[in-house]
């Protein structure tokens, strides 16, 4: 579905998606998407962090509690992290968080970890579009009474 289609249809659910993007790669990738005038959904709210390694699982879980329908952590490709191993540590921690979500019975498709470099503006836009559609299909995050 293209952006134009989603905005013209009135009833379409517009998810809120939080993306924690590292300053050096993924945020720069978002910038590049911007300056290249590539469109990606306005559902994406970017939180810039210095490194994906800064993102504690608590931040992700809290984003969900505060109403995010989807959350993504985006960092440099393995080997490219400006703090050497920040992204690898992030991956280790976040893989465990996904396992914890399974224990809690929470849909893990609402979360993604992606590596996006500063030169991948196009890929940034693609991933964001794809993830937005994925979360849109899942519907609004369910809060039990």
């Amino acid at each position: 579905m293209t952006q134009a289609e989603t905005t013209t249809s009135i009833k379409v659910f517009e998810p809120t998606i939080i993306v924690f993007a590292c300053n050096w790669c993924s945020y720069a990738g978002a910038d590049l998407a911007g300056v290249s005038r590539l469109k990606y959904p306005s559902n994406i709210r970017i939180v810039r962090v210095m490194c994906s390694g800064r993102v504690d699982p608590a931040f992700v879980m809290k984003a969900f509690l505060k109403g995010a329908d989807g959350v993504m952590v985006a960092g440099c490709h393995p080997g490219d992290c400006h703090y050497l191993e920040g992204n690898l540590r992030a991956k280790e921690r976040i893989d465990k968080m996904v396992e914890a979500m399974k224990i809690l019975g929470f849909e893990k498709d609402r979360f993604r970890l992606e590596w996006i470099s500063a030169s991948e503006g196009k890929r940034f836009a693609q991933i964001m579009t794809e993830f937005t559609e994925q979360v849109r299909t899942l519907g609004p995050i369910k809060k039990s009474e």
Binding site: P57, M61, L65, L104, G105, F106, K142, K143, S144
Partner: peptide, 13 residues
């Protein structure tokens, strides 16, 4: 994180 987990259990599942 552990309190967040607890609230999560209440509100999300």
């Amino acid at each position: 994180i552990f309190n967040i987990m607890q609230v999560f259990m209440n509100e999300m599942t």
